[in-house]
Simulated scan of single mutants.
Amino acid sequence: MLRGVLFDLDGTLLDTVDDFMAVIDSMLEEHQRPRVAPELIRAQVSDGSVGMLSVAFATRPGEPGFDALREEFLSRYERALAVHTRPFPGILPLLDWLDSEGLPWGVVTNKLSRFSIPLMEQIGLAERCGSLVCPDQVSRGKPHPEPVLKACNEIGIAPEHCVFVGDHLRDIQAGHAAGMATIAALYGYLPPGEDHSLWQATHSVHSAVDLQPWLLSRRHLETPHV
């Protein structure tokens, strides 16, 4: 039976790509570089600043100037976390339903606390979120189950009664490793050509609006009598 839900952050709970694009566009302009297509950046969001900058500036970690670009990007983003960022359509009604049902929910992300905590505060979800686990709060991040298990402990729900929703293979791997059901959020930031069927998620959705019906069905599952 469903008793709690965990979400990835970028690409699952929140649509953050427009704020990333705004930072990258301004950097490209100042560095006198051509703009890149938004869909190319969108496909790299799950790989963080390294992935997005590698595509935008045709560079990679270890090359001259990359570290300075990354620091510039992170500094700019920290000052404008939630200008365009919004919950995906369907997320707020889902969170309202979870709250009304007394089902705690949390977030397990690979986004550092430096950004995740103020972002959740500015979006207005911090006080409602039962747990926010970031990679700098654990010794091993996703796909290791440690952050997922930490979140389960903080919301007080056993993993087998929890569902983890994420838009990346590592989210599904972390959920499975923790012993919980998983949902692949196919509306998120999937790279082109990604075969999500290989993730072997328990369920998948193409819109956040489709999350609640499936979670509702899990809510009413009865534990079989032995």
Score class of each variant (00 low, 15 high):
residue 90 G to D: 05
residue 121 E to N: 12
residue 71 E to L: 13
residue 61 P to H: 10
residue 10 D to P: 03
residue 51 G to A: 12
residue 152 C to S: 10
residue 31 H to M: 08
residue 147 P to E: 03
residue 123 I to C: 04
residue 132 L to P: 04
residue 24 I to S: 04
residue 12 T to N: 08
residue 222 E to T: 15
residue 138 V to F: 11
residue 102 G to C: 08
residue 57 F to D: 02
residue 25 D to L: 09
residue 34 P to E: 12
residue 40 L to V: 13
residue 182 T to L: 03
residue 103 L to W: 05
residue 72 E to F: 04
residue 143 P to F: 08
residue 11 G to R: 06
residue 115 F to V: 07
residue 155 I to M: 05
residue 15 D to I: 02
residue 77 Y to T: 07
residue 187 Y to N: 01
residue 49 S to M: 12
residue 162 C to Y: 01
residue 107 V to H: 02
residue 17 V to G: 00
residue 19 D to V: 11
residue 147 P to L: 06
residue 80 A to H: 15
residue 178 A to N: 01
residue 107 V to P: 00
residue 154 E to W: 09
residue 180 M to L: 14
residue 186 L to P: 04
residue 140 R to Y: 07
residue 217 S to C: 08
residue 172 I to Y: 00
residue 14 L to N: 01
residue 136 D to W: 09
residue 53 L to H: 05
residue 187 Y to I: 01
residue 26 S to Y: 03
residue 70 R to F: 05
residue 216 L to K: 15
residue 223 T to P: 00
residue 33 R to E: 12
residue 153 N to E: 15
residue 184 A to H: 01
residue 152 C to E: 06
residue 117 I to T: 13
residue 170 R to E: 01
residue 106 G to P: 03
residue 210 D to N: 15
residue 120 M to G: 00
residue 45 V to G: 02
residue 184 A to W: 00
residue 114 R to M: 09
residue 97 W to E: 06
residue 44 Q to D: 07
residue 80 A to T: 14
residue 222 E to Q: 15
residue 70 R to Q: 15
residue 199 W to C: 08
residue 36 V to N: 00
residue 71 E to P: 01
residue 217 S to Q: 15
residue 191 P to I: 05
residue 225 H to G: 01
residue 31 H to T: 07
residue 205 V to H: 11
residue 110 N to S: 10
residue 1 M to Y: 09
residue 219 R to Y: 14
residue 114 R to I: 09
residue 1 M to L: 13
residue 106 G to Q: 03
residue 200 Q to A: 12
residue 130 G to T: 09
residue 205 V to L: 11
residue 123 I to E: 02
residue 136 D to N: 14
residue 27 M to L: 15
residue 106 G to V: 04
residue 5 V to L: 04
residue 136 D to R: 12
residue 172 I to H: 01
residue 14 L to I: 15
residue 27 M to C: 10
residue 144 H to F: 14
residue 147 P to S: 05
residue 57 F to N: 02
residue 17 V to A: 12
residue 191 P to A: 13
residue 3 R to N: 11
residue 41 I to T: 05
residue 150 K to G: 03
residue 61 P to K: 11
residue 92 L to R: 02
residue 74 L to F: 08
residue 181 A to E: 12
residue 120 M to C: 08
residue 42 R to F: 13
residue 68 A to V: 15
residue 148 V to G: 01
residue 11 G to L: 06
residue 5 V to I: 08
residue 189 Y to V: 04
residue 99 D to W: 02
residue 199 W to N: 07
residue 69 L to V: 14
residue 86 R to I: 00
residue 34 P to S: 09
residue 66 F to Y: 12
residue 81 L to S: 03
residue 148 V to D: 00
residue 154 E to Y: 06
residue 42 R to P: 02
residue 160 E to W: 10
residue 103 L to P: 01
residue 65 G to K: 08
residue 146 E to V: 11
residue 213 P to Y: 13
residue 119 L to K: 00
residue 88 F to L: 02
residue 31 H to P: 00
residue 20 F to M: 14
residue 29 E to A: 09
residue 173 Q to C: 11
residue 47 D to Y: 14
residue 40 L to G: 15
residue 179 G to A: 09
residue 76 R to P: 11
residue 171 D to Q: 06
residue 106 G to S: 10
residue 43 A to K: 04
residue 84 H to E: 04
residue 179 G to N: 10
residue 219 R to G: 09
residue 174 A to G: 08
residue 184 A to T: 06
residue 28 L to G: 04
residue 226 V to G: 11
residue 78 E to N: 14
residue 178 A to I: 01
residue 196 H to W: 12
residue 50 V to C: 03
residue 200 Q to M: 09
residue 202 T to N: 05
residue 70 R to N: 11
